[in-house]
C-alpha cells in the first residue's frame, strides 16, 4: 500500500536532482515571461530616458509560442525527411547516393545558418516563411548525419543475427537498427533544435515572429533593457530544450545498457 510520504524522502530529492537541468530553466523562463514587470527597477538604468523599460508590443508568452511554433514545425518536418533519407541511402539500393550524401552532410556543416536564412529571403520574400525554410533546411543536416552515423554503428553481427532469426529487411530496420540508432538520432534532433532556436532569433531580421524581435527592437532603439529581456528568455529556452533532450538521450542510453 502506498504510504503518503512527504516530499523530503531521499528518493524524490534524487528525482529532483536528475531533473534540475530542466526545472531551473523552466521556472526561470516562466518567471521572466510572466512577471517581467517586477524587474523594472533593475532594468531602468539600462533604458534610455523616456523609453519604455519593458517590451510591450507583444506578450512574451505569445512570442515564445511563435518562436516554438516555427522551431517545432520546421524540425518535425526536417526530422521526418532527414531520417527517411538517411535510411534510404543506407540501404543497398541507395548505395549510389551514399558517398555524395556523406560528403554533403559534411560540407553542410560548414554552411552558416545565417547564410541559409539570407538565401531564403530572395527565394520566398520576407516574413515567417524564409525563417521556416531556413530552419527546415539547416535542421536536416545534423539529423541526417546522426541518423547515418547511428545506423552505421549498429554492429554487422547484430544485423546478421536478426536475419538469422528470420526477420525480413523491414523487421531488421524497425526492430533492430532504428531502436539501436535512436539515441544518436535524438542527439541529432537536439542539435537541430538548439541551432533552430538561435536561427529563429536571427529570423526576426527578416520579419519572422519570435523572440528575436525584442532583441532587434532593443538594438535599433539603443535600449539595452529590451536586449537583456529578449536575450535571457531565448537563452533560457535553448537551455531548457537542451536539458530536455539530454534527459531523453540518457534515458534511451541507459535503457539500452541494461
Amino acid at each position: 500500500m502506498p504510504v503518503n510520504t512527504p516530499a523530503a524522502s531521499p528518493a524524490s530529492f534524487e528525482y529532483l536532482r536528475d531533473w534540475r537541468g530542466v526545472l531551473v530553466p523552466l521556472l526561470l523562463l516562466l518567471y521572466f515571461a510572466l512577471f517581467t514587470s517586477t524587474l523594472e527597477p533593475l532594468l531602468v538604468s539600462l533604458t534610455p530616458v523616456g523609453a519604455p523599460v519593458i517590451y510591450v508590443r507583444d506578450s512574451f508568452i505569445n512570442l515564445i509560442g511563435w518562436h516554438l511554433f516555427l522551431v517545432v514545425l520546421a524540425i518535425t518536418a526536417a526530422s521526418l525527411i532527414a531520417i527517411a533519407a538517411a535510411i534510404l541511402v543506407s540501404r543497398a539500393g541507395g548505395a549510389d547516393f551514399l558517398p555524395l550524401a556523406r560528403s554533403l552532410a559534411n560540407l553542410g556543416q560548414t554552411l552558416p545558418p545565417v547564410a541559409v536564412l539570407a538565401l531564403a529571403v530572395p527565394a520566398v520574400g520576407f516574413g515567417s516563411w524564409p525563417t521556416l525554410i531556413a530552419l527546415f533546411l539547416y535542421g536536416l543536416l545534423p539529423i541526417f548525419e546522426n541518423t547515418l552515423a547511428g545506423l552505421g554503428q549498429v554492429r554487422p553481427e547484430i544485423k546478421e543475427a536478426a536475419k538469422g532469426l528470420g526477420m525480413g529487411p523491414m523487421q531488421v530496420l524497425w526492430r533492430v537498427e532504428l531502436p539501436l540508432a535512436l539515441p544518436v538520432i535524438v542527439t541529432g534532433v537536439r542539435l537541430s533544435v538548439i541551432i533552430s532556436i538561435g536561427t529563429a532569433t536571427i529570423g526576426s531580421t527578416v520579419a519572422a515572429k519570435g523572440l528575436g524581435e525584442v532583441i532587434i527592437a532593443g538594438l535599433l532603439t539603443d535600449n539595452l533593457s529590451f536586449v537583456l529581456q529578449g536575450g535571457i528568455i531565448v537563452a533560457l529556452m535553448a537551455m531548457l530544450f537542451d536539458a530536455l533532450f539530454q534527459r531523453l538521450e540518457s534515458r534511451l542510453l541507459s535503457a539500452q545498457n541494461h
Binding site: G198, T201, A238, D242
Partner: peptide, 13 residues
C-alpha cells in the same frame, strides 16, 4: 546553447 544573437546582446550590457 545560448543563441548567438542573445549572446551578443547579453555581452553588450
Amino acid at each position: 546553447t545560448i543563441p548567438s544573437l542573445a549572446m551578443f546582446g547579453l555581452l553588450m550590457i
